Amino acid sequence: MSDKDVNDYLTEGMYGTRLPKEEERKKFLGTLRERIVLALTIGQVMTDKGIEKLEDAMKQNKKAKLLINGHVDTRFMTEEKKLANKYNIPYTIIRNEENNTDIGAVLTYDYAIDKEDIFLEESVEEVTDKKEDTEKKQGSLLSKMKKWFS
């Protein structure tokens, strides 16, 4: 006899069978981390910062597939789609209203490859540029406030 009760059967019937590592699947557009070659954030997809790395990864992984977050506007997905077509890599747009993730695109396999570094790292210059920009914005805001009270 199994350990399932009536509530387990009802829940399974209404929502489907529970998948292992469900939270991980929600984050990575339906796939598991161990299958991913490269993961780009929504910001990287929208600014095309990771497009060169994505192209390199596609060149090296011709049997992979591309998953694109459907919450990203279609005008920001054009470069990724062009690359996928160029290297004959199938792509799927994943639009899941129930789940929110910061992942914009994932190059993945159907099996585990256990790649350690799947995220595109920002260069040191980009990080310092962002800091300088925020400091400039804060400085200008402070100077404006000083002028108001002077």
Rank of each mutant, 00 (worst) to 15 (best):
L32G: 09
R33H: 11
R33F: 11
E34Y: 02
R35I: 13
R35N: 15
I36W: 01
I36D: 05
I36H: 03
L38G: 02
A39V: 10
L40K: 14
T41P: 00
T41G: 04
T41I: 01
I42G: 03
G43H: 06
Q44T: 14
M46S: 08
M46T: 02
M46C: 06
D48C: 04
D48T: 07
K49H: 12
G50M: 01
G50L: 01
G50P: 04
I51T: 14
I51L: 12
L54V: 02
L54F: 06
D56I: 03
A57L: 03
M58V: 02
K59P: 01
K59R: 12
Q60L: 09
K62H: 10
K63R: 13
A64W: 04
A64D: 08
K65H: 15
K65T: 08
K65N: 11
G70L: 12
H71P: 00
H71S: 12
H71Y: 08
V72K: 02
V72N: 09
D73T: 09
T74F: 13
M77A: 08
M77S: 10
T78R: 06
E79D: 15
E80Y: 14
E80H: 13
K81T: 07
K81C: 09
K82I: 14
K82Y: 08
K82L: 09
K82E: 10
K86P: 00
K86T: 07
K86G: 01
K86F: 02
Y87G: 00
Y87V: 00
Y87W: 01
Y87F: 04
N88L: 10
N88Q: 13
N88I: 05
N88T: 10
I89C: 07
Y91R: 07
T92M: 04
T92Q: 09
T92L: 07
I93F: 09
I93M: 08
I94A: 01
I94M: 01
R95M: 14
N100D: 04
T101A: 06
T101I: 05
D102A: 10
I103T: 09
I103C: 07
I103S: 09
A105L: 07
V106M: 09
L107Q: 06
T108P: 00
T108R: 05
D110T: 02
D110K: 02
D110G: 06
D114E: 13
D114S: 10
K115Q: 14
K115H: 13
E116N: 15
E116D: 14
E116K: 15
D117V: 15
D117L: 14
I118D: 07
I118M: 05
I118A: 02
I118G: 05
E121S: 11
E121N: 11
S123A: 14
V124K: 13
V124D: 13
V124A: 12
V124Q: 13
V124P: 02
E125R: 00
E125W: 00
E125K: 03
V127T: 15
